[in-house]
């Protein structure tokens, strides 16, 4: 033992050293550091929990917001559809009115044209009669009385009328 340098004094001294170090380190290092670690762990846990709750809240709010947005969108869509429908109806009404007006105007125009044509035809006929009368008078000179003449021409015209119609 002596050759290896083992003796009770030194052995005890080393054991006391260790005990002293253990005591001091427990007081100044282990306890404060472990306490700090624990506190930090708790703080982090709390922060995480808080973050989680905030996240949940945010998600809820997002959902609510989405819901409201969807609602608004749907409302707007409905309004737009109603408006579009009304517009369509209005358009149809206006269109129908326009068609009606146009048709009326066309009819009027047609009537006018027809009337004028008839007028013109009548006039024309009158003139032709007149002319023919004149011409016939010239040709036949008083060979026929006026009444016979007129009948003749009218017959002729009636014939031409029939021809024109065919």
């Amino acid at each position: 033992m002596e050759a290896l340098g083992i003796n009770t004094t030194w052995l005890l001294a080393q054991i006391i050293n260790f005990g002293l170090l253990l005591f001091i380190l427990s007081r100044i290092a282990y306890k404060p550091v472990l306490d700090t670690l624990n506190t930090r762990k708790q703080k982090i846990q709390e922060s995480l929990d808080y973050a989680e709750s905030v996240k949940k809240q945010a998600a809820e709010q997002q959902k609510e917001f989405d819901r409201k947005l969807e609602e608004a969108r749907r409302g707007a869509q409905a309004a737009a559809a109603v408006a579009a429908q009304a517009g369509e109806k209005e358009r149809e009404v206006i269109l129908a009115q326009a068609h009606e007006d146009a048709r009326k105007m066309i009819d009027q125009a047609k009537e006018q044209i027809e009337y004028e044509r008839k007028q013109m035809l009548a006039e024309l006929r009158q003139q032709v009669v007149q002319l023919s009368l004149l011409a016939a008078q010239k040709v036949v000179s008083q060979s026929l009385d006026e009444q016979a003449h007129r009948r003749l021409v009218n017959d002729f015209l009636a014939q031409t009328d029939r021809l024109g119609k065919n």
Binding site: Q14, N17, L20, L21, I24, I28, T39, R40
Partner: peptide
């Protein structure tokens, strides 16, 4: 034995320096 006192001193000084301003 002398060196083990130095060792203790070093460790304790380190611990004191490290825990002087403990913060989270």
């Amino acid at each position: 034995l002398f060196t083990s006192w130095i060792v203790m001193l070093l460790i304790i000084l380190f611990a004191i320096a490290a825990t002087r301003k403990m913060s989270l």
